[in-house]
Design a binder for these strands. Structure first.
Length: 437
RNA sequence: GGUGAGAUGGCUGAGUGGUCGAAAGCAGCGGUUUGCUAAACCGCCGUCCUGCCUAAAGCGGGACCGAGGGUUCGAAUCCCUCUCUCACCGCCA
């Protein structure tokens, strides 16, 4: 949520900044300001009337305690109370109206975010393992896709996935299932020990208030899975960002509490309506996938530094797995709703012959904190909104794609990176039976 | 699912209709004193909105005691609904 004061004072600046996103929010901003002005007018009237009423009530109290008569004050007070009632209803409606409008306005892109309307205008800020990419590309025709590999080895069972749940679901089998489990463990260990995040394991079902807190609702309700249960209002987590950031909703933290770093594993559930084709083949776009997510709650003055560190923490995953990647700074038009600045990290997948997004690291500034009333008392004693950040560290399904495709051997087996061996029972080869050996 | 008890400031917790924005303690901030860390004593110490003021300070107004509604001239306090917490029972991993 944006700061209404800022919008009142620099409405045009805000509109202009938002126009860098792919749509115009000018009319929404205007509507918000209009309702806000009406609301404030109603509030002004209310305050005057209430001041009168409070005065009368006090006077009545005084007279009664002295045993005096106060009948004429009673009727006067009643008249005022009646007009208060009317204005109060109006004011409540206006307030809610303003809030509802505010919830649909995205965050303002940071100054360092480049202009652009689509993914083509994102800038590559880092490339790692370029020589390996070149080498892989030179013999690209030898590389099978993860779908071919996975099915041949019987470690990815897409048929079984759709048998149980429909398209967009997969069953990992044998070494596939073990690899998935190993990666979760590996990622959590890396971030909790080396990067000093605190491990949390949150609920996967999340209520509306939390979903509003991080910005998934109300605007993106159609992308979310609800449980379908009548009388309940729970959604399946689209990312651990939601439960983990909301850990501190409605809290006033102490200055010394910050920064807070969390790492969490959760499955992620997304409808992904309307996507199909090459983009979605195999494991690349699933309705359910596993992810280890990193969440930070920090002081405002440090949040951009923290974003860089967060990004490095995610990049480290790919470096340790020796998977070539590149990092993009997203342009204003390609950023998510709540982000002020966002990096995407993409891993090279030779079977696909392209880069796949495995992480998205964003600074939300105080956008989420405002929605969820997440504040801290700074060293001068002033209450201020925290800044929140999160980044994937990383998404697992696409990591599996890259691992299978990069590490495939001519004989059809797969030799996984050595660093995973402790998590795979000391083994690293997926043999032709789909077992570890 | 049943029964009962609760929800008050950063935390603990008192407060059953009028001077309560709210006792007390802890934490925090400022100060005094004993040779340091520490202890003792004194003072300050909720949030949001808003008016006067260039601003700060200060003074004034309004709101907030889980949320929403009601009763009343007047509600933290009484009534209703909801949400959550705790205890016991039932059920289940």
């Amino acid at each position: 949520m944006l700061d209404i004061k800022q919008v009142r004072e620099q409405g045009n600046g805000v509109k202009q900044a938002l126009s860098r996103r792919n749509a115009s929010y000018s009319s929404l901003i205007e509507e918000w300001l209009g309702v806000d002005a009406k609301w404030r007018e109603a509030l002004g009237k209310l305050e005057t009337l209430k001041a009168q009423k409070n005065k009368l009530a006090k006077e009545i109290g005084n007279r009664k305690s002295r045993g005096e008569n106060a009948d004429e004050l009673f009727s006067e007070s009643k008249t005022i109370a009646a007009s208060i009632d009317a204005i109060e209803n109006e004011s409540r409606e206006l307030e809610n109206d303003a809030y509802q409008k505010a919830l649909f306005i995205p965050n303002i892109p940071h100054d360092s975010v480049p202009n652009g309307s689509s993914a083509e205008q994102n800038t590559v800020v880092k490339e790692w393992g370029t020589s390996k990419v070149a080498e892989l590309k030179s013999q690209i025709s030898n590389f099978k896709t993860h779908v071919e590999l996975g099915e041949k080895l019987q470690i990815l069972d897409f048929e079984a996935g759709s048998k149980i749940s429909g398209s967009g679901f997969v069953v990992y089998r044998k070494a596939g299932a073990k690899l998935e489990r190993a990666l979760i463990q590996f990622l959590l260990d890396l971030h909790t020990s080396e990067h000093r995040y605190q491990e949390v394991s949150p609920p996967f079902l999340i209520h509306r208030k939390s979903m509003i807190g991080t910005g998934q609702l109300p605007k993106f309700e159609e992308d979310m899975y609800g449980t379908g249960q009548t009388g309940e209002d729970l959604f399946l987590a689209p990312t651990a960002e939601v439960p983990v950031t909301n850990l501190h909703r409605d809290e006033l933290l102490r200055d010394a509490d910050l920064p807070i770093y969390y790492a969490a594993y959760t499955p992620c559930f997304r409808k992904e309506a309307g996507s199909s084709g090459r983009e979605t083949r195999g494991l690349i776009r699933m309705h359910q996938f596993d992810k280890v997510e990193l969440v930070k709650i920090v002081k405002p003055e440090t949040s951009y530094e923290e974003l860089e560190k967060l990004r490095e923490n995610a990049e480290r995953v790919l470096e340790l797995l020796e998977l070539p990647y590149r990092t993009l700074l997203l342009c204003a038009g390609d950023m998510g709703f709540g982000a002020a600045k966002c990096y995407d990290i993409e891993v090279w997948a030779p079977g696909e012959n392209r880069y796949l997004e495995v992480s998205s690291c964003s600074n939300f500034e105080d956008f989420q904190a405002r929605r969820m009333a997440l504040r801290f008392k700074d060293s001068t004693g002033k209450n201020r909104f925290c800044h929140t950040l999160n980044g994937s560290g990383t998404a697992l399904a696409r990591l599996v794609v890259a691992l299978l495709e990069v590490y495939q051997q001519k004989d059809g087996t797969i030799i996984l990176p050595e660093i995973l061996m402790p998590y795979l029972g000391g083994k690293r080869t997926i043999n032709l039976n789909g077992e570890l050996s």
